[in-house]
Amino acid sequence: MVVAVIWRLLESMHGHLGVLAAVALLHPAILLRRGLPLSRGGRWAVGLTGVVTALAFGLGVGIYEAYRELVKRSLFQADREVGLLFETKEHLAWAVVSLAVGGVAAAFLAGPRDRDLRRGAALAFALAALLCFVVVGLGTYVASVRSFPEPG
């Protein structure tokens, strides 16, 4: 019972962090869109966005094996198409993380005169945010069909 609660809790945290990451990724996209140098607060925002995105992804990877064992079979039994949407979500999540990593590094490495580089980072963040919203939407839909079993 305790184990079931823990998996549900971790799944819930994964979902919430995903939503947070989607919103957080929009912030640097807006901050950097004009190519102006980042303020100290802006640098914190970019760094924390990278951390939140990595945490959401890492937690998803962490709970996957239990998800495969306890949920995935019944998900495909319930609806094959929704099961495949879970796969789509996984693939897009990788794109989100790699774009966010590229964006964070570019934003931190850009010098005072590298306007274009910052605008490029903004585009990477914007694309990552867009894909992350799709990932979050798919994740919410999939979880509404099948999720970790309730305790008891």
């Binding site: 790699s98 990593v101 964006g103 490495l109």
Partner: peptide, 13 residues
């Protein structure tokens, strides 16, 4: 730094 910045963007894409 700028080269590494562009290279990071290329990595992500």
């Amino acid at each position: 730094r700028a080269r590494f910045g562009w290279a990071s963007l290329a990595f992500g894409l």
